[in-house]
Simulated assay, not measured.
Amino acid sequence: MTATIDFYSQEARKPMLSDPEDTDLVVGKDFLGYTPLNHPRGECVADVIAVTGLAGHAFGSWRHEDGKMWLRDLLPQDLPAVRVMIYGYSAQVQGATQATSILEDHAETFRQRLLSFRRFEPKRPLILIVSPFDPRVGEI
C-alpha cells in the first residue's frame, strides 16, 4: 500500500516518522522506482504506469496547478479495477553524449524492474503513459 501526503505550505519540511525505528514505512519525496497510487477494488484487470520525461518529477509532472494529481485523484475513480503507478528515476541530464548513455541505462533499468515487478501477472494488460520533456524543471 502507498499513501501520498500533500503539503500546501511554502515552508520547507522534512517528513518525519513518529517511530524512527519503523523499517516497514518509507518516507520520501523523490518517488524513485515504481510507486502505486491506488489499490484496485476487486480483481486488478490492468496496470497503468506513468513515466515522466527528462527533467521531470515522477509525481509533480502529473500534478495540476490546483493541486490535483489526475493519476491519483481522478483516474482510479473512473477505472476502479486498474492499478495506477508512477515510475521515477533521476531525470536530470546534461549534454547530448551523456544523455544518450543515461537514457540507455534508464531504459534498461526500467525494463528489468518491470519484468521483476510483473513476473506474477505477465499477461495482465499494461498501459504506459509517457510525458515528454518537462519544462517545469524542479517543480514538485
Rank of each mutant, 00 (worst) to 15 (best):
L75Q: 12
V130F: 11
M16T: 10
L114N: 13
L103W: 09
V82D: 11
G67I: 11
D19G: 02
A55I: 00
D73F: 00
R72P: 06
F110Y: 09
R111S: 14
L54K: 08
S101I: 12
P20Y: 04
L128M: 04
D73E: 01
Q98I: 07
R136G: 00
T23D: 15
S101K: 15
E139W: 09
P20M: 00
Y34I: 07
F31R: 08
R111D: 11
A99G: 06
V82S: 03
S61Y: 08
F31M: 11
L32H: 06
Y34C: 04
T109D: 09
R72A: 03
A50R: 10
V137A: 14
V84S: 00
Y8T: 10
G88S: 02
K14I: 04
H57G: 05
M16E: 14
E11Y: 05
D73V: 04
L71C: 04
E65S: 11
Q98E: 14
T100Y: 12
Q92I: 13
D66N: 10
R118P: 05
P76H: 10
V27A: 13
L115R: 14
S90R: 13
D30W: 01
E21M: 07
F117W: 13
G138N: 01
K68Q: 10
D47M: 03
A58S: 12
V137L: 02
L25H: 02
K68A: 12
E104M: 10
S18Q: 09
L71W: 06
E65V: 15
A58I: 01
G33R: 04
Y34A: 10
S61H: 01
P36W: 08
L32Q: 12
L103E: 12
T23C: 08
R124H: 07
S101G: 15
S101D: 12
Q112M: 05
